[in-house]
Design a protein around this nucleic acid. Structure first.
Lengths: 121, 121
DNA sequence: CACGAAGCATAGATAGACTATGCGTATGAC
DNA sequence: GTCATACGCATAGTCTATCTATGCTTCGTG
């Protein structure tokens, strides 16, 4: 199953959260971020560029990421994003919220059987 | 933590899914549905009436629920909803999708520690 | 030199959830 | 008796994150 995160996908704000999460590991530019989300999700999630770039603008304005234009060896310019201190804080918070809500929803739909998928510890 | 399902809450469509899920057990009217979601989620989720009633209209138009006006003993009229065959089908499908996406997102944010919450079997 | 992948960006549409508001009835307290 | 509160349905308007569609540039490869 391959899907974008909007039409019965993930909540608004999930994209922001995922971006921040990936940036904790290392600074990345937009295009690579999209690739990473795709591979890390096992190919389940696909992020449209029309979602991604506006998201990065939001994050920048909110000061949870900083950006820097770099020129890679090839000569091509890329815009590299890093997570800020405020970003880390926001991330922990929203991730907590996200999990709380998920757990709550799962309580309600738990009787519905379907592919079993989430298993955390 | 108490929250509505929109602002960093649950994906669009989650409300529909939860409603259908509750209707599998028994027919319910709007007001009671909201109450149920609240209690079943352990008080975490709160559904606004401005979200609930439009959702019920949607579901009705989509023919995944049927409705019937009843008069309860007190004399007050209530609109009672039941899930249809098509509704059951949709529910299994969307619940599966929902879990798939959640699992995918969790894979991406798994390194972020916060309150541990989901545990399914 | 053509063509696909890499790379950034914006404009406009969509749609679900919210806020705010309105209306009306039953019930219990004072 | 009247007042507050819970019950109960509904709509209009706003918000906003995501999507679709589009445009432009550069790099690498055959």
């Amino acid at each position: 199953m391959r899907m974008t995160i909007d039409p019965m996908g993930a909540p608004p704000g999930t994209l922001d959260m995922m971006i921040l999460s990936l940036l904790v590991e290392e600074p990345l530019h937009g295009y690579l971020l999209a690739r990473r989300i795709e591979e890390r999700s096992g190919g389940v999630l696909g992020i449209e560029e029309g979602s991604l770039y506006p998201a990065l603008q939001r994050l920048r304005k909110r000061k949870v990421v900083s950006d820097e234009w770099l020129t890679q060896e090839s000569g091509r310019k890329i815009r590299v994003y890093s997570i800020t201190r405020a970003g880390r804080k926001e991330l922990v918070q929203t991730a907590g919220q996200w999990r709380t809500v998920n757990a709550a929803v799962e309580k309600i739909i738990q009787s519905i059987k379907g592919e079993r998928s989430v298993r955390l510890t």
